[in-house]
Amino acid sequence: MKQADRRELSPEQRNELLNVLKARFEKNRNRHQGLDWANVQAKLEANPDKLWFLDDMEMTGGEPDVVGYDKETGEYVFYDCSAESPKGRRSLCFDRAGWESRKEYKPENTAMDMAAEMGIELLTEEQYRELQQLGKFDLKTSSWVKTPAEIRKLGGALFCDRRYDTVFLYHNGAESYYAARGFRGSLRV
């Protein structure tokens, strides 16, 4: 179990997570061509709070992996790279306002609240489409994506999936939730 009072993994948890991330990094080199694991690991070890967030991504089924490096900020970019929307982050309304608008059968949480609790950001539509260039994701599930304020003000929220070898962007009421819809996150380290 995680230590509730501090956002720091035990040495054993840290090593286990780093081993999982390294194995995934090496197995999926197409996601991060030209990047070196030793540099990623050094950055992670210098930012133990980010390891905590990556562990949350891993524990909820996201299978986080490096998908890029921002030369301007010197940060590595991680996305959830699980084949389907993370299992531990499904059946969620889009946000708190959507959740509160439900009269009955409210889910346990919302995508926006859970992402904030985990210290990650929902993918944007653009990031979702970038992810789909690295593989085929959400063939059976769908994922909420960040929604423009003007759409959200009208009660809507956006989600994406991949069907017929094409990435689709859809809308739904923010109060809706489905067993096959979750969210994918990003984290910069």
Rank of each mutant, 00 (worst) to 15 (best):
N47H: 12
F137Y: 15
F78W: 07
P107G: 11
R31K: 13
D165A: 14
Q3R: 13
Y177C: 12
D80L: 02
D5E: 14
S91T: 11
E84L: 07
A97Q: 09
E104T: 12
N19M: 09
S143F: 02
Q13A: 07
S85A: 15
G61V: 01
A38T: 13
K2H: 14
A97S: 11
D165F: 11
E121K: 01
H32V: 05
E58P: 00
N109D: 15
A46C: 08
L35K: 06
L54G: 02
A115G: 07
E126H: 08
M112I: 10
N15C: 04
G62W: 03
P148L: 00
L154V: 08
Y178I: 02
E150Y: 00
E8Y: 05
M1P: 11
R7M: 10
E12Q: 11
Y164S: 15
D165W: 07
E130R: 02
K153C: 02
F53H: 13
R188K: 14
M114T: 00
R7I: 05
Q33P: 00
G98T: 01
F159S: 02
A4E: 13
P64H: 06
A149K: 08
G119M: 06
N172S: 13
L17Q: 03
G155A: 07
A111E: 06
G98M: 01
E75K: 10
R89Q: 07
Y170N: 13
V167T: 14
R31S: 01
G34W: 07
L187E: 03
L9Q: 03
L54F: 03
D113I: 00
K136V: 06
M1K: 09
R152K: 10
L123C: 06
L123V: 02
R29H: 13
G88F: 06
V145G: 00
E84H: 07
D49R: 10
H32F: 05
I151E: 02
Y170R: 11
R6G: 12
T147I: 01
